[in-house]
Amino acid sequence: MPESKIRVLIAKPGLDGHDRGAKVVARILRDAGMEVIYTGLRQTAEMIVAAALQEDVDVIGLSILSGAHMTLFPRVLELAKEKGLGDVLYLVGGIIPDDDVPALKEMGITGFFGPGASAKEIAGFIKQHVERG
């Protein structure tokens, strides 16, 4: 019985300890039929990329509230591309000022979901962008 599932890594880079949003999103995606790997708090770029590689995920969701995204995200994306994970779909949740979005898009982040994003919106976006599953 061949079966394929969308696999998503949800990670919180950096030092802020607020993972309620990340956990809510993880649950939303599970309820949308995806397999969600949650890595927990305080992840370095190296830990996130190593986990994404071993778990062979289609999507990496980064959650951040600390404002350090312009420091942390480039490192994650650079390392991920170095390891051959350039074709993964990158999403961001949390607080990202509009001014930073163009630069992050340039880096390879496709989806942005701030406060108020609906479950349907996030799951729909992933299903639309990930071919398999």
Partner: peptide, 22 residues
């Protein structure tokens, strides 16, 4: 476990092992 209702799963064992992942 996979949820019998949605077919999705929340895989959390890694949380306790992440320090080893690199």
């Amino acid at each position: 476990p996979t949820s019998p209702f949605s077919g999705g799963a929340l895989l959390g064992d890694r949380i306790r092992m992440q320090k080893l992942s690199t």
